[in-house]
Design a protein around this nucleic acid. Sequence first.
DNA 1: GTCTATAGAACGATAGAC
DNA 2: GTCTATCGTTCTATAGAC
Lengths: 212, 212
Amino acid sequence: MSTPERLIEATRELLWDRGYVGTSPKAIQQRAGAGQGSMYHHFSGKPALARAAIVRTTEELRATAEAALGGTDTGSGTGTEVGAGSGTASASAYDRIAAYLVREREVLRGCPVGRLTMDPDIMADETLRAPVDETLDWLRGRLAGIVQEGLERGEFPAALDPAEIASTVVATVQGGYVLARASGSPAAFDAGVRGLLALLAPARDDPNSPRS
Amino acid sequence: MSTPERLIEATRELLWDRGYVGTSPKAIQQRAGAGQGSMYHHFSGKPALARAAIVRTTEELRATAEAALGGTDTGSGTGTEVGAGSGTASASAYDRIAAYLVREREVLRGCPVGRLTMDPDIMADETLRAPVDETLDWLRGRLAGIVQEGLERGEFPAALDPAEIASTVVATVQGGYVLARASGSPAAFDAGVRGLLALLAPARDDPNSPRS
DNA sequence: GTCTATAGAACGATAGAC
DNA sequence: GTCTATCGTTCTATAGAC
């Protein structure tokens, strides 16, 4: 791996674990196995390196999310699939959202993108903040589109607002990281996700009809 | 206000805005209007001051949350109250959760407690981490109890798990802060909360019955 | 209790040899 | 491209006068 490449990867790891303020050029160099001069030859400084790292991390998040949300069924259904069952029909909205929610994550490390929003130095620098904002915005839009499809298929109550539900889904994930880190266990993340899935569950024809 | 008092308050503000790593003793002293020697006379160092600040902030969060969740109706109902309407009956579970969710917040500053979970130095120090963990744990338990009451009153579908829903509620709030900060607007927080309230809404006898 | 002085280390970056 | 040397600043804390 080339030196700039190693520097970017080292920065990504440190940004994830320690944030921008907690990441020093020295630590980056050590982790990347590169010297001072080498780092400053390839990058103008800490902000430039951080930008490269953040852009790559946000691109990766988009790709990972899209893989779960894409709807090209990976074969392992949840058992609550909806639809007419034609050969290559895309998975239900619920299933695609569920696939996104339960995908494998390094829960205790937190979200490599969401974490950055708590860093004042990142939020203050437009070039660092923009990729974060755009990525979470894209994710909400992507989810809103899927909820909209679900609404059209009658999967969800018509009263739901796609953009709002999308925000709730992303917020539950981001907040799940917080709960997991606080408690030191991924269980809290999982609980939040299961609660959300229960609320979203298409199986609304519940034997226990609510509200008298 | 006494000097120790001012130091604690200054630390609380800085911890909220810049986190533990981003908060220097010097910055605390300047904000508190206290000198170096003064600070080290009253506190053994940055960790001790941070502990005092964190304990106070978590206590404050509990009190604020309890005020909304307490159920002693503040008079401004949401219009969806449930119950037999006896004189001093406590508000519905939905209303109490809604009151907690929509309470006034400095959304763009993030959660003064949840933010701390992203600070590796705080998570590594048991004396700093404990109050954060205990507070979020208390909040989840408190909410779970209210959901349980709602279940017993038939406000929610019986399939819901109180602890899971409680985690979802707290996660939505914590994640809402992330979305708001990323986008630079409280709107994303509000959207997530409205989505969650729509999913929790007791008005489940929806004209549009889902899932065919 | 509060002040100033001082300390060793780390921070973020630059200079210039190779 | 990579190295070592150096720089001015900030960090966190201690010492000791007042």
